[in-house]
Design a protein around this nucleic acid. Structure first.
Lengths: 156, 156
DNA sequence: ACGAAAATAAGACTGATTCTCATTTACACA
DNA sequence: TGTGTAAATGAGAATCAGTCTTATTTTCGT
């Protein structure tokens, strides 16, 4: 209920020429308060949980609006629903390791890789706007536990 | 209608312990004959066009079966539908530059980038199985034409 | 050629997301 | 501090890619 936080978020929204609706503020507050990657439905349910009245449609629309303004980043982990996180600064971009067994997502940043990407773009006279790099596999925890009689990758 | 090609594809399917149905053969033939990245609906329509009788369900199921057998590769360009291409050899993996204006997809391979990926995985004690790297932006053609105000290329 | 197992066709179903439109809200300005 | 208006929202219908169900057909070993 921090009024100060509300005020700050209101300002952020106004700076992006967006109306500071209670729904948008609640949404940003939620994403600010976690490092998890929620999908739209989880965000919707959590906001209802918090007694915010908001509809699914608004969650989707607001997320899109915020993504357009680079206040939120949309992530595609390839499992049929999009995840969202509060955008870090442009310089704080990161990529993802995604465990196919437990679904854990590990963030990483590798400068050399970013450099190579720019190199590739130049080679092809391509002007990049953004990119996604997802490495799928098995995380530390999961392959340690692999002594279990579980079979191969379920592959979705 | 090359009977030889049919025979070859039949053999490929049998080698993977799959029944050589006319639908699967037609599907592989289609993907073999193009370098484009079709989505399931396009494949379905194209097969109908070619007088192959095949249902949408079969297109989806067969694609999944072929992907499981590594005969076909499934690509996620983040626009809500999957694309498919005939698998290259394991060593012929490539990543993608995706033009946000015209939808063109340029394939590339960068050894240094692949090496960095392995390095990142080791750092996190993560065992990779595969990865996707998509760089979105504007291709050469499109940003050259960008001075041209009437060249809108929708191409969903 | 025969039959069991596998594959298919058609369309119902699902789950995520988008759209529609009547109603409500934010906020610039009087 | 009210008010008009454009923007945003709520509720649910619609859409869209993809999956599932079931009766029917096909493949392929024998």
């Amino acid at each position: 209920m921090s009024a100060a936080e509300n005020q700050a978020l209101k300002k952020v929204l106004h700076e992006h020429e967006l109306k500071a609706t209670s729904q948008r503020i609640a949404l940003l507050k939620l994403l600010d308060g976690t490092s998890e990657h929620f999908d739209a439905e989880e965000i919707y349910l959590e906001l209802r949980q918090r007694q915010k009245n908001v509809s699914r449609a608004t969650v989707y629309r607001s997320l899109e609006t915020l993504v357009d303004q680079n206040l939120v980043t949309k992530l595609d982990f390839g499992d049929g629903r999009m995840r969202y996180e509060r955008s870090q600064g442009e310089d704080e971009h990161h990529d993802h390791l995604i465990c196919e067994r437990c679904g854990k997502v590990i963030e990483f940043f590798n400068l050399e890789m970013e450099a190579q990407q720019l190199f590739v773009c130049e080679e092809h006279d391509f002007v990049p706007s953004n990119h996604t790099m997802h490495i799928f596999g098995t995380c530390s925890d999961c392959h340690t536990l692999k002594a279990n009689p579980e079979a191969e990758t379920p592959s979705q």
